[in-house]
Write a protein that binds this DNA or RNA. Sequence first.
DNA 1: CGGAGTATTGATCCCATTCAAGAACTGTGG
DNA 2: CCACAGTTCTTGAATGGGATCAATACTCCG
Lengths: 249, 249
Amino acid sequence: MDSNPLAKKLGIFVDLQPGDLAVIARWSADRSELPARHVFIRQGDRPRATCLMIEGWAYRYKTIKSGKRQVLGFLMPGDMCDPHAFILGKADHDIAMLTDAVVAAICKEDILAAVETHPRLTSALWWTTLVDEGIARAWLVNLGQRSAIAKIASLFCELWHRAKLIGLVHADAFALPVTQEQLGEAVGLTSVHVNRTLRDLRDLKLVEFRSKQVVISNIGQLMELADFDPTYLQLQRRADIPARQSLAS
Amino acid sequence: MDSNPLAKKLGIFVDLQPGDLAVIARWSADRSELPARHVFIRQGDRPRATCLMIEGWAYRYKTIKSGKRQVLGFLMPGDMCDPHAFILGKADHDIAMLTDAVVAAICKEDILAAVETHPRLTSALWWTTLVDEGIARAWLVNLGQRSAIAKIASLFCELWHRAKLIGLVHADAFALPVTQEQLGEAVGLTSVHVNRTLRDLRDLKLVEFRSKQVVISNIGQLMELADFDPTYLQLQRRADIPARQSLAS
DNA sequence: CGGAGTATTGATCCCATTCAAGAACTGTGG
DNA sequence: CCACAGTTCTTGAATGGGATCAATACTCCG
């Protein structure tokens, strides 16, 4: 389990059977280590495989002509980068490592073969892409409609919940290996203003972000401030869907 | 064809065979008319079917506690609202009609059956969801990093290209049935500032938006101003993928 | 014709940006 | 273990883009 964050994550949605677990284990076998800052996929690249984060963090971002960058999302263990990017052929954004990381490459054929033969797994994979879409929608709301402090609070809430899910939160704290600059690029703020806003959050005794560690003393109050509703992250196994449901039946 | 915008759209990606077309025709059969402003799906709803736009426009949006709204995307003929929302169970945003519209409801079972038996169609459906994700990423960049004028220019560019694709652009103009308020909710600006920015665009002789019609005199120059790269819309049939490729083979 | 929603423009304000400069970290090589 | 260079962080002061408030016109529709 510990070595298999994907199984852990998919298991929330679906009762994975031994056969499914075997497939996941096979996927996770072909591992490679990448150093921090390594750019894994660049805009315009033609990925021949999809990648599964085993250890470490990565992030997606897009650069515009003016040189400004927008971070599109953060990847942590168990997350896949575009389980189906090969359909479009070309990546439309960059993905780079935030820390030294271990990733598993899964080639197109392996995915497609699994889709054919393991409906339960297929269903679970589909589910993760839908969660990712939900996250993107939440970011749209964040970028478009919230104040600086709510933007940052909201992002911290998302990351806290996701990190908690895969067991990365210890004593109200989790590692967030990003600079204030990158934080700003995620929420549409200047690094300077991110800095000031982090001070405000610290003064409010809600969050501390220092030496790449987020310490959340009062998650409830923070969620209140951020107007954060975790439903979209689909953290709980849904009671109203039979656990063994698959796409096929 | 004219009555089947979905076939037209999917046909760009994949050579649809008679069997595929028959399925699409069957889907499009169960039509219903909805008046403008009708809220089709509300946050928290449990959609029992997915919907295909046949005629008219709709939009997705999310409302936050303060009452502010963020528009998440616009739907035009041929677009589907969440071909797979039933996997998550609950809608996490609202969808409402912008005009009187004709939509076709496709129930869960029909989709799943088609996925089982028509790999080419499945592949094409998957492709459209990926394009939608690409659009969402472009919006993130828009909301986070661009100036007011570039935001609006960029949105007009997207809609122009999408409308053109389905034959809705005539003589450099297309209908965009939204208020300036809604435009603002899409790009993260006040309706007042949208108004001023539209005046600027008019003064620059690039775009006119009046009585719900967008007239673009110089699309090239507008794309330049917006730093707009249409690649992510996947408008061209890709030369490097065999047209008859499917997921299964 | 009247009323509600929508568009337009002006005046003022404020949140976040920009510019700048120093302090506190990194990590690296001697 | 220290020195040094390159990031990253922090804070101040000034600026500016877009928001807010407000008043008037336009448009559509019953």
